[in-house]
Structure formats: C-alpha cells, structure tokens
Design a protein around this nucleic acid. Structure first.
Lengths: 345, 345
DNA sequence: ACCAGCGTCTTAACCGGTTTAGAATGTACT
DNA sequence: AGTACATTCTAAACCGGTTAAGACGCTGGT
C-alpha cells in the first residue's frame, strides 16, 4: 500500500490541471486563479505531496545546501567547542528556509581541497564556508576558479573577493592586556595557534601590539597546533624558561585548561603564582577550578550571520548582514595579582 | 570563457558516441568495446567532466547522502566530544565512496522529527543515523512508515527492526565498580543522563547491577541532562546529602570535570577525599589535574562502523560489519583509596 | 464586429544523468 | 545460404520538478 511517492504529476491529474500549473501554484507564483490555486494546494496536501529535493535541485540548478569542510585532526576536533557551536548557529539560519548543511571532516589539506572541489563541482552545495584560512590558501583560488559562492570566516586581511565575516577581538584582547597590566604582570607568555593560519597570526599580532603599546616587553611565544597536548607542552616550555611569564594567554580554552592542569601538577598555584587566560569562552571555562578568565566570542551568532550572508550571496542579493558582535573580556578566577617573587626554581 | 559545465552529452558528442554509451563507459558497465571505453574515458578526462550529483541522484533515486540530526541543546553540544568524534568516524567510511553527510542541529524534539521526515521524504538522504534513542521514540515509527533506511546507535533493547550498533560497556562498568570496591569504596554516587534516553537508562542499570552484585548498597542517583551545569548541581546535591558518596561516577566526562571543579572549590581533595570517574575518555580527561579515571569508548570506530552498516543497508546488502570494540576502563589519577572518615560537615 | 489585452491554463522543452528496447554488425553453426 | 546469437552501439523514455512559449476565452474599447 505504501506505493510510490506522490509526484507533482499525480497532484496535477487529481486536480485536473497540468503539471506546470501545479508547480506555479505550489511556488506561489502569479498566473493561477485563486480557486484553482486553492484546489491544487488542498489536493497536494491531501495526497501528502512533498517536493523532491533532487528533482528541484536539478531543474533549478540550486541544491539549497551549503558545505563546510573541517580539516582539523580528530583529537583536536573532539574537544574544540568551536564547530558544534558554529554549526548550531548556521542551522538556525538555514533550517527555516529548508536548506541543509553538508559537513565533511578530512584528514589532510589535500583532501580538504578535493572535498571542496567535489562538493562544488558536483553541485551538491550552492556555496561553502571557508574557515581557518591560511596564507596563500588554495581554497580561495579554487572557489574563484569555479566561480562559486563562499563566505570567509576570518579577518578581512584576506584580499580575496569574497565576503568576510569576523569577530573583532582587538578591543577585548587589549582589555585583557590592560587587565593583566593592572594586576602587575610584566612577563606575558602566549600560546598561539599555527602561524600559517591567518587568524592565529592575527591573534598573536593583536596581543603583541597591545602588550607593547601598554609598555610590556614582547611576550614569549610558543606555537602550537591548537591541541591540548601541545598546549601542555607549551606551558611547560614557558615555565621552564629563564624568566618564566607570570601570566599565560592561550589561543583557545582547552589549551588553557591543559595548561592549568600542568601548573597544578607542577605545584604552581593558579592564580596566586600564575595567571592563566583562555580564548573562546567555552562552557568548561566556567566549571573549571579556578574558573578561567577568557575572551568570550559569540560563535553561534557568527555562524548564524555567516549562513545568512552565504544564502544571500547565492540568491544574488547583496544583503549586508553586519558583522557579529565583538569579543568581550570575561574576567574570572584564573587571573590575579602578580606574585611577589617570580615563579620558578 | 568559463562557460557551462561539461555534461555527459558534451563528452558523447566529442567522442562521437551516444549519451547512453558514455554513461555505460563511465560506470564501468559491460557492453562497451575496450577501445571505445578508453576513448570515452580519455575524452571525459580531457574535458574535465565531473558527474552532476543532482542529476545522478534524480535518475538513480539515490542521493549518496546520509542524515544525522542532533537535538541536544547548543551548550551541551559545544562541550560534548561525542559528535565531532563520531562524525569523523562516519566521514572516514563514507568519503571514500564519495558519499556525504548531512548534519542538522535542532532545538526541540518536534523539530527533530520534522527534520528527519523532511530529509527522508525529500530524498535528500538515503538513510539516517538515530542516536540518543528514547523510550517510544517516534523516529523509529517514522522511519518505518517511510520504509527508509536507518541505523540505530544504542543498545539492542530497542525492538525496532533496524540494525543496531552499540558499544558494549557492561564489562568495563563492572571493572570500574570492581576497581572502586578494591579501593574500599562503599557509597557510590551516580550522575546519570535523562532517564527517557535508553542508553542513559541502560548505563545506570549496568552500574547499579554491578554495584549490587559486588555487595555495595544501591548507589545514590541524580539525573541530569548531560550538561556540565547539571553535573555540577548533581555533585553538590550528592555531597550535601547525609551520607555523601566517597566516589562519584558521571555519565560523561565534562560533567565529571565540572564535578571535579566543584569538589576542589568546596575544599574537597580529589582523589584523597573523593574519587571521581568520567565516561567517554575525551581528550580533556588526560589534561585535567588530577587526570580523570574514565571509561574509554572508541567513538570514532563506532561512527565508522555505523556508516558502513548504513551504506550496506542502503545498497541492499546484509553485510555484518560487526560491533565496535567494547569499552575499556581507563584508570588515572582521580580515583584512590577511600578516606578514613567520611567527607562532609 | 473586430481587435487588443489580460488572466488562466496547457504544452513541451529542459536540467543531466540512467536505463530499457531494439538496431546494426559480425561470427558460428547447420 | 539461412538462422541463431553475441557484441556493440543508438534512440528514446524516464526520474520529478521548473519554465518559456503560446493557446484559449473573456472583457472592454472603438
């Protein structure tokens, strides 16, 4: 009894009109008399008609789908709150109009590029999100070559012709440095992300700039891949130096938490002997002890706007959805006055 | 100069054959002479032909896409390592064959059901993953009604006719209880997930069973929604009771970490005065201080097999991919001998 | 009475693949 | 030579929608 799915032709036959008219009626286009439209709609409803996404995609040359490809390695990905949050924002924007997100996780940059290419060339998606933009990122060239739609997440330093959406965090980072300076800190340590990622580079530059304009020495910098493991190693490296920093700022929260764990294990009291600062304001920063001072970024809103921007790009509109709200400093328990004597052996 | 995408018809014309034959050649089907096949393939390659996923989906009635709908609230989702890890496993299985994952995040159970329905009815996906199965879960009826393909993540207690894939954890949970008993613990606290979720219920039952068979009193149980926030509240509730437990087992790692934070804040030393156990073995358990004793679940492998199973279901095959490896107890620093005197005021 | 113009509806092509029926050709067998 | 059969290929229908072009009837103006 299940039978075949009811198609637009079934509806047309039952309503006694042509396929084309049914299509017009269902899409609310003019040229259908009110009574007929009414009848078609009710027949379609009675028959439980649902549009076939594939057929529609083929004839309109629109999939109503958007692609996101993640190339972070699984272990970083698992503890990174960015993507789940970002995605939930994206969904909030696209699910209303019935659009859909195609997500891909890959293990290498080559596969990442291939995946973007195949998603776009096969017409599976109408546009893509580009996150973690790198220097000379081949994805920008690819998207341009395919003259596809894209939204870049990151900072406008990227000179590609794509709309860009970024959370401005200079002010928050400057406020953070001001906060640390007010607490008496002179020696900052920075645990940064991979320098080939533009946003990691920019984050570092913002902090260095804030530090120097506020009269601090150039911070010690250790580069990581954003993983908790490297966050831990970076912490150790910083603390074992000749003049260990009295405050360490991490490029994400879980590296900061790993650093916090290391400090405690090494018998260093946080924040009395060492101040620790995260980035992102993920859920766990609130529940750690001490709770983590961090920089709050409204990632869901970022995703929401990025999706809106991408949709409007595809529609050909030039809607300006506006930039997401700037980052905010969130002072919690992990930062305090600098200890009287430097930490260390 | 970009021009239109090259279609199969372009290739046919250039190779001097019919559309149909090109299709046969490209799909490696018999009935094409070796030389012609060769020629067609090389022409297709030269012209940079790529199949159009939409057209193929329409004519084959297969989208080569699979759906996953998450209905957890964004804050839980952001710190939950399950899904990113699961998804990375899924991707590893499906991306080879060129299939794709459609991900959706919704805010309510009604929307969840609607989303599954629309994904399946519109033909956007060929099958779905069902996670977090609940009692009388309407999704099972839905999938059956649509006679769609699905793989259930969770335990075979579900009597639906769908293939089920679950990580067996009874042995690990029993080993965990044995471990705690060996350390002298008598009073266990359990921080469980929502009781309407079958796997939460099952997790609780397994632990209660292990506890009673090992001669412990029935553990105190507090139910949560898996969020760190409720994990914290549950910890407080347990510790403020008349006879507080000497060990608390949490249904996931980030609740355990929140509990750990609370204990430390309350001046309770872990593990000297209180043992804490997580579940899932997420990355952060290693980097916390003390590092968290937990139950290790190979979620990526679970996702990998689930995807394989789903693909084989859709192909009509009855491949048995086998169950994922069982959970393992991972003893770290957060469990130790029971304190001489009970904790508390 | 005629034509213009409008609103309503149908026809048929089209999107880019897959697939079935059958044509054309060659080979083997009787 | 005639038939049976396999191989290779073509033509055309089909998947389920969208959409351009045009048919048809009605109204109103002259």
């Amino acid at each position: 009894m299940a039978g075949r799915k009811t198609t637009i032709a079934d509806v047309a036959q039952r309503a006694g009109v042509s396929k084309g008219l049914v299509s017009f009626a269902l899409n609310g286009r003019p040229g259908v008399s009110p009574e007929t439209r009414e009848r078609i709609l009710s027949v379609a409803h009675d028959m439980g008609w649902q549009p076939d996404a594939r057929a529609r995609a083929l004839s309109t040359n629109r999939s109503l789908a958007y692609g996101l490809v993640l190339s972070r390695n699984p272990s970083v990905l698992s503890s990174d709150p960015f993507f789940p949050t970002f995605i939930s924002g994206v969904e909030r924007a696209i699910s209303g109009p019935g659009h859909v997100l195609v997500l891909s996780v890959v293990e290498s940059l080559e596969r990442e590029l291939e995946t973007y290419r195949s998603l776009l060339e096969s017409g599976r998606v109408d546009g893509v999100f580009l996150t973690d933009v790198r220097r000379d990122d081949p994805r920008l060239a690819l998207v341009q070559e395919l003259s596809a739609h894209a939204v870049v997440l990151g900072h406008p330093r990227v000179d590609a012709g794509f709309p860009t959406l970024s959370v401005s965090d200079e002010a928050a980072l400057d406020a953070l440095v001001a906060h640390l300076v007010a607490l008496g800190h002179h020696e900052l340590g920075l645990v940064v992300g991979p320098s080939h990622m533009l946003h990691a580079e920019r984050w570092r530059d913002s902090l260095v700039a804030a530090a120097t304009t506020r009269g601090l020495r150039t911070p010690r910098i250790v580069e990581t891949d954003f993983s908790a493991e490297m966050g831990l190693a970076a912490t150790r490296e910083l603390l074992e130096g000749r003049t260990p920093p009295t405050a360490i700022v991490y490029a994400n929260d879980h590296m900061a938490l790993a650093g916090l764990g290391h400090a405690r294990r090494a018998g260093i009291e946080v924040p009395r002997e060492l101040s620790i600062v995260g980035y992102g304001d993920s859920d766990m920063t609130r529940y750690a002890y001490p709770s983590l001072t961090t920089v709050s970024v409204d990632v869901a809103e970022w995703g929401y706007r990025a999706a809106q921007l991408l949709m409007s790009q595809v529609e050909g509109g030039t809607d300006d959805v506006g930039q997401p709200p700037p980052a905010r400093l969130e002072v919690r328990e992990s930062t305090a006055s600098v200890p009287e004597r430097p930490v260390g052996p």
